[in-house]
Every structure is written in C-alpha cells, then in structure tokens.
Simulated scan of single mutants.
Amino acid sequence: MKTVNKASLKDVVPQECTLKAWGGIDDYEFVFVPEQRSQPHEKTDENKKKVHFADGSPTNETFLSVGDTQQRADTAISSALVISPADTINFAFDGTELTGSITLMNTDEGIISYKVKTTSPEKFRVRPSTGTLMPSASVSISITLQPGYQAQGLSREKFLIMSLPVESGNMSPTELADLWRQAAGKPVCQHRLKCHIPSSSDSSARNGSALTSNTMDIDQQVKQFSSSVSHLSESQLKLYAEVKFLKKLHILLVIMVLFFGTLITYLLTLEKQYGGQHCYKQ
C-alpha cells in the first residue's frame, strides 16, 4: 500500500491510465446510468406459498406420477422416495415435548441419499437429518421442537425433503455433508411439508398442565434454594463469630504464656543469685 499525490502518481500509474484531472491523458468522465427495472410480476397464490430454504436450495419441486392418478392423502412420491405423511407433519405432545415424525422409503433399484431441511433450523431437532437408503429400505425421522420456542407459530414452518441418487450406501457424515454441499447442478428431487399443531383445547390443556407442573417445580426449587442460602448465611455468621472468639482466646493464651514464662525466669534468676540464703529479722 502506497500513499500518493498528484506529483507522485505517475510513479505508480501510467500516464495513459491517469485521468486528466490528475495530470494524465485519460479523458474518462463518469456518467450515471439509471437502472432499468422491469414491472413486478403479479403475485399469485402459488407464489405466496413458496418457501425459501437456507443454503440456497432450489425451490422447484419434482414429483413422479404413477399412472397419472392422484396421490393418496397420506403418502407422496418424490422421484423414487416415498414420503409419509405426504403433505403435513402432525405434531403431538410426548410428555412435555412437541414431536412429529416422517417416514421415508426408497422404492428405486438404486441407492439414494436424503436430507431434511427446515425454514427455522434453530427451532427443531431433526434426527437423522441426512443419510442413505438402500433399495426397499425405509427410515423414520424424528422432529422435536426445541425448548424455549412457542408452539403457536409452528403452523408457519415448512420442511423440505431432498433426495439424490448415490453410488454407495456406506457414507460417513462428513461425506454426506460434502455431497449436499456440492449438490448444485445435480438431479435433486424435492418435496415440501407443512406443520400442524394439536387442537387448541388439547394444546392448551397439555400446555396448561405442563406449565403448572413446571411452575410448581420452579417455585419449590426457588424455596429450597432460598432456604439453603439462608441456612448457609447463618452458618457463615456463626463460623465467623467462633473464629473471632478463638482468635481473641489465642492472643490471651499467648500473653499469659509470656507472662508466666517471664515470671518463672525472674524467680529462677533470684534463686540462683542468692543461693537459697534467707534473711531473718532480729
């Protein structure tokens, strides 16, 4: 990096590439050209339903029609991958957790790899999110709403099931990550799923009972913690008083030892000086 001025610019930039304003011969002048904007396309219901997923995944869907008949309501076929449920993931309470599941089955003669993506990766725990399926093999994918997130906005979330033919079924997690990282331009089949939460009455009842239970547990823990802190504070004060008393007692004992030691030394000195002689009054 060099700092130049009008005089030293010629040492760095040729004169034919230097503007006239800086002593060169280039007569370039900046001209602003307004951007030509096309009219926005009219929004349709189909466009409104499109979901944009992370990592720049494509948004077009590819399906395999069977005899040009309508797919069953509970099963969809995206390429060679049979997806169940076909349209909506139904979430239900498993204890205090809200969970759903997806079943994938490979109906092709070759091996395929799958990947599950969502519009909000931070909200869900998906296990397994990627993997491979041998011919006629199936896998059940568990989806759990992470703690701290509300179930009310769950119906706005979407899931994307992606599949891709591969040559080997024994791929490590690193190899699978590299495969999907380099999936651009490959024949990736996709299928989207919506989310459905339990009915409001069931949800409120379960949420209410869970919230009440959690609130009671938290209140009890807070009371126990406060009691422990109070007991610890009292014990600390008692210990401080005892240590202070022992310190004073220790100082007193040292003084007494020094006093009696000095007195004994003085008496022994007198005994040695007078040799045990005594004077009696006549």
Rank of each mutant, 00 (worst) to 15 (best):
residue 91 F to C: 09
residue 263 L to P: 00
residue 269 T to L: 13
residue 189 C to I: 00
residue 215 T to A: 13
residue 24 G to T: 08
residue 229 V to A: 13
residue 266 Y to R: 14
residue 50 K to L: 14
residue 71 Q to H: 01
residue 178 D to G: 01
residue 57 S to R: 15
residue 8 S to W: 02
residue 188 V to I: 11
residue 136 S to C: 05
residue 188 V to A: 02
residue 33 V to E: 11
residue 75 T to S: 06
residue 215 T to C: 03
residue 57 S to I: 07
residue 269 T to Y: 15
residue 255 I to R: 11
residue 69 T to V: 15
residue 88 T to I: 15
residue 164 L to F: 02
residue 14 P to S: 13
residue 2 K to V: 14
residue 60 N to I: 11
residue 279 C to Y: 08
residue 172 S to H: 06
residue 123 K to R: 12
residue 7 A to V: 10
residue 86 A to P: 01
residue 211 L to G: 05
residue 187 P to T: 05
residue 192 R to Y: 04
residue 242 E to M: 15
residue 146 Q to W: 00
residue 237 L to R: 12
residue 225 F to M: 07
residue 76 A to S: 15
residue 128 P to A: 04
residue 55 D to V: 05
residue 243 V to I: 12
residue 247 K to W: 08
residue 5 N to Y: 02
residue 131 G to A: 08
residue 204 S to P: 00
residue 168 S to I: 05
residue 63 F to S: 13
residue 144 T to G: 01
residue 111 I to Q: 04
residue 191 H to V: 05
residue 278 H to W: 05
residue 47 N to C: 09
residue 178 D to C: 02
residue 32 F to L: 12
residue 279 C to I: 08
residue 229 V to F: 02
residue 52 H to C: 03
residue 90 N to K: 14
residue 265 T to V: 09
residue 14 P to W: 05
residue 253 L to S: 15
residue 89 I to P: 01
residue 77 I to W: 01
residue 264 I to D: 06
residue 192 R to Q: 14
residue 145 L to G: 01
residue 222 V to N: 02
residue 99 T to F: 02
residue 241 A to T: 08
residue 185 G to L: 04
residue 277 Q to M: 05
residue 89 I to G: 01
residue 109 E to K: 14
residue 257 V to R: 06
residue 12 V to D: 02
residue 275 G to V: 02
residue 37 R to D: 05
residue 142 S to Y: 00
residue 1 M to Q: 04
residue 36 Q to C: 09
residue 214 N to W: 09
residue 272 K to H: 10
residue 190 Q to K: 11
residue 87 D to A: 12
residue 62 T to W: 03
residue 253 L to H: 07
residue 12 V to H: 03
residue 149 Y to T: 04
residue 245 F to T: 15
residue 72 R to H: 07
residue 112 I to K: 03
residue 14 P to Y: 06
residue 264 I to E: 07
residue 84 S to C: 07
residue 96 T to K: 15
residue 213 S to H: 13
residue 192 R to H: 05
residue 41 H to V: 11
residue 61 E to F: 12
residue 232 L to T: 14
residue 171 M to C: 04
residue 212 T to Q: 08
residue 35 E to F: 10
residue 154 L to F: 01
residue 252 L to V: 12
residue 274 Y to K: 06
residue 178 D to R: 10
residue 88 T to P: 00
residue 17 C to P: 00
residue 112 I to P: 01
residue 146 Q to A: 14
residue 120 S to L: 11
residue 28 Y to E: 03
residue 27 D to A: 12
residue 270 L to D: 09
residue 142 S to N: 10
residue 8 S to G: 02
residue 74 D to F: 12
residue 241 A to M: 06
residue 133 L to F: 01
residue 213 S to L: 10
residue 104 L to A: 04
residue 91 F to P: 11
residue 145 L to T: 01
residue 71 Q to A: 14
residue 51 V to M: 03
residue 57 S to Q: 13
residue 63 F to V: 14
residue 46 E to S: 09
residue 267 L to K: 14
residue 99 T to Y: 03
residue 175 E to V: 03
residue 145 L to H: 01
residue 60 N to E: 15
residue 56 G to C: 05
residue 156 R to A: 13
residue 270 L to E: 13
residue 70 Q to V: 09
residue 268 L to A: 06
residue 97 E to D: 12
residue 40 P to T: 08
residue 278 H to F: 09
residue 215 T to I: 03
residue 113 S to C: 13
residue 234 E to N: 07
residue 201 S to W: 03
residue 108 D to C: 07
residue 260 F to C: 10
residue 62 T to D: 10
residue 43 K to S: 12
residue 214 N to A: 15
residue 265 T to G: 10
residue 75 T to L: 13
residue 154 L to W: 08
residue 103 T to C: 06
residue 92 A to V: 12
residue 273 Q to P: 00
